[in-house]
Structures are given as C-alpha cells and as structure tokens.
Design a protein around this nucleic acid. Structure first.
Lengths: 232, 232
DNA sequence: TCAAATATATGACACAAGTCATATTTTTGC
DNA sequence: GCAAAAATATGACTTGTGTCATATATTTGA
C-alpha cells in the first residue's frame, strides 16, 4: 500500500452515485475531513479477517474481492466490491472485528473515512441508515442465493453462475464480450466452491462447447443469453 | 391461521428482550396500535416467497423456518426464527416482495404490526435502525458461514452442524439433551443441503457411533462437546 | 535475463453422495 | 377405526468431482 495524495475531497468525488450520494455538499465535506487514502497493488490485502476497525473504506477506483478462509485453509469468495462501493461497514457498525478479508484484484485506490465522520453523517442524515439497511439486505439476498447454488447446483452450473456474476458486477470490456476483470483459475474455483482442477477442466469444456472463449487470462462470453440459458 | 385475541398489548408483552426492547412504554403502545395477531398450526405458511408486504411480523410464541425454493423444486432452509424474533423486515424496509417463505414448525402465534407504526417507531427512536443493522449483519454473517459449510464440508459434517444449530437456536428440553424442536428428516436434509436418504443414513450412522440418540422424532445429543469436536 | 515460484493443464483413480426403487412404519383426516 | 398419504428406512447402482501426481507454461523478483 502506498499513500495516495491525488484523491479529491468527498464533495468533489468522481463517483457521483456512491453510497453517500444523497448527502449535501456540506455533509460530504464533513464526511471527508481528515480522510486518508491509499493505493493497493493487485493481490495486496486491504484488511484481514479478524482485524479491528475504526474507519470505513470507500473504493475510489478499482476492484476488490471479499473472502473468508474456510476449513483446510481453503478460501471461499463471498462478494466483490468495486469503484464507488464501501467496505468494512459491518465491522464498523457492530464494533466487531472484520469477518472477512478484502484483497485488491487489480490496482485499487481506497479512501479511509474516520468512524467519527461516519457516525456524524448517520446522525445528520437519517436516510443513510436506510441506505445501509438496503445494502445489507441486498448482500443478504445474494448470500442466500449463493447458499442455494452451493447446495443444489452442479459444479458446471456454479462455474457458469460465477462467470455471469463477473459480467454482472464488472461488465464487459469495450469489445462487448470480454469480462472486465482477470481472475486466476483458483479465484474462479473459490467463487464456485470447487477445486482448481475442476475449474480448469470445466472451463475448457465450456470453451469446447463454444459457450466461452479463453484468451490468456481473459474470459469472453460470445453469447450471454446462451450462457444464461444453461443455468435457468 | 386463526385470529388470536389473547395476545397482550406491546407494552405488556411477555417477550421483554425482543427487537423493540429499547422502546419506551409509550413508544411500545404506539407500535402496537391496531395490531392484529394470529395462530398458525405446525406446517402452515405465514408468508410466501413472492408475496407483498405491508406489515412486520413479531413472533409472540413458537418456532418458524425460513426457506427458499431452489432448482428442481427442492427447498433450502435459510434460517430459523423463534419467540420474540421479527419476520418480514427485509421486504418491509426495501418495499420488496418476500424473498423467502416462512412456515410454522410448531404451533406459532404471531403479531402483525402495521408498517406505519414501524416507520414511526424508526423515526422517533433512531436506536431502532441500528438494531436492525445489527440484526441484518448477524443474519449475513450466518449466511456467509453457511456458504462455506456448503462448499467445503462433507454431508456428515453439514448434518452435524445442522444439529448443533438446532441446539444453539432452540436449546435442549428439560432433560438437558433432547433438542427442543422436532423436524422431519426432510427438513434436516434441507438445512444441510443433502438428500433425505442421505440425511436418514447419516443420522443412523451418528446413532451407531453414539454421537446422538434417536427417540421417535426427537434427537438427543448426549455429549455436546463430543459432537462439536467432530466438526472443528 | 534468469531461476524460482506459481499457475495451468492433464491423467489416473477413488469414493461420497445422489438417484431410483421398494418395503415398512407413522401420521393424517374423515 | 381405517384407508390413504407421508415419512422413514434400505438396497443397488452410478457418477460427478475431489485428490494426488506430474508435466508444461507463465509470472515474479532480483
């Protein structure tokens, strides 16, 4: 992590639709008082499961994976977060240690907002609590759907659902078919709860069936509808 | 469902530690204004996935399972709720349909609190938002742990974890070893994300290893620590 | 640039757990 | 009390997927 001094004040942030978008200009100024920021390289850990928290993280730019370590030292991917998303909110609002690890999956710039600023914003703008409730509800809905996938879908289906989630979260690159993030086979396996070897094999199978294309670390979905139909 | 006219006003509720425990007496009186209540028989549905909501449910007495229908018509158990817990809060605060089905697993009496009362309580007592944030955070933590179990644990381990969750949620009966709820093998299987046949077989195996006792529909855990050690 | 580390790919093999069928027991509703 | 429905139990069989080992390709860091 290296300190980043090029990030603007919260009231001038380029991410207009972020979690704090409903705050007034003056509320945003107070939110960003004394904030710091830093840039993490791909693979660097932003915070660790079990660590203590006194600030909220706001992603200025980049992509992050949230993982938990399971049994036998294997990771399970819980969620992705990207530019404009907040991180570490559950620990902050519950005065708990982090219960997951946040890792940059590409170079990522993050702002650290002091807890006192957040609490003040919550008090002055009660809409913010409702936004947080909605965010947690959305996370919970996604987690519940993931439980069902893990319990009831085949490994192939889970891998396809993982690819569709990547598209949904990060979109396509400009060519309109390359998933806009590069993950290792291990990371894909951690999303789908399968072994790396199985992920590798099934990706090749999907390629052979022309459902995806593989170009170095890029995965392309030539026909999104067709891939979606595989898991209906 | 039959209407129940024996439930007291919220300010006199026997469940002193419920979600609304921090409200003042007068706030509780306003919360319960025009509330209704009903009693559901074991197996009756309290609300259905996809249904619309304009009230919050508060369990006066009883036990409820929250399930989602997965692929191929198979249920996945998401969570249990019991006496003093609230239900339907996510739909209410997000103006969404219910995304799960709530079913009584024993005779259950539920109070229906009008949405307007809830919103008023939220406005007058900002602590209530924080309690809801904490509740959602707790649900989410549990769901995330469940994802890991589904992805990384054997069926036997998952069944044991399901039994431990039943103990944790509902406790033991007075003998100190009978789990204080009766579920069918199918319901246990839905908790663990395994087939009924597998649940039946593995229960018998656990019995043979003296880790549990089976007495009609009752499951007994003679040595809780020993069972916990099986899944460390 | 190069050696070491890591990621990807592949083959072989084993088995946990699912499906299907059937028998038996228990529960339900009239 | 009784028939039907549902739950529980068991056997047989199949296979999806994990593990382990090894080869090859790519990335990393000095």
């Amino acid at each position: 992590m290296k300190k980043d001094i090029n990030v603007p004040d919260c009231s001038s942030c380029k991410n207009k639709d972020n979690f704090f978008c409903n705050l007034s200009i003056s509320e945003k100024k107070r939110l960003g008082l004394n904030k710091k920021s830093g840039t993490y390289k791909k693979g660097e850990v932003i915070f660790n499961e079990g660590g203590l928290s006194n600030r909220l993280y706001c992603i200025y730019k980049g992509k992050v994976k949230i993982t938990k370590l399971g049994t036998e030292g294997k990771d399970q991917l819980i969620r992705f977060s990207k530019t404009a998303d907040i991180l570490g909110y559950r620990a902050l609002f519950n005065n708990d240690p982090y219960n997951a690890t946040a890792t940059a999956i590409e170079e990522t710039t993050v702002c650290f907002l002091p807890k006192s600023n957040i609490m003040e914003a919550l008090t002055s703008n009660t809409d913010l609590s409702l936004r947080l409730i909605q965010l947690l509800s959305s996370n919970l809905r996604d987690a519940e759907n993931h439980i069902i996938e893990m319990g009831q879908r085949t490994a192939t289906e889970r891998l396809i659902l993982a690819l569709l989630l990547l598209h949904e979260t990060f979109g396509f690159a400009e060519d309109g078919k390359t998933i806009n993030v590069k993950l290792s086979r291990r990371e894909l396996a951690d999303m789908a709860g399968i072994s790396s070897e199985t992920a590798i094999r099934l990706l090749i199978k999907l390629k052979e069936r022309n459902l995806i294309e593989l170009k170095q670390k890029n995965i392309l979905i030539p026909d999104l509808k067709k891939l979606q139909n595989e898991v209906e």
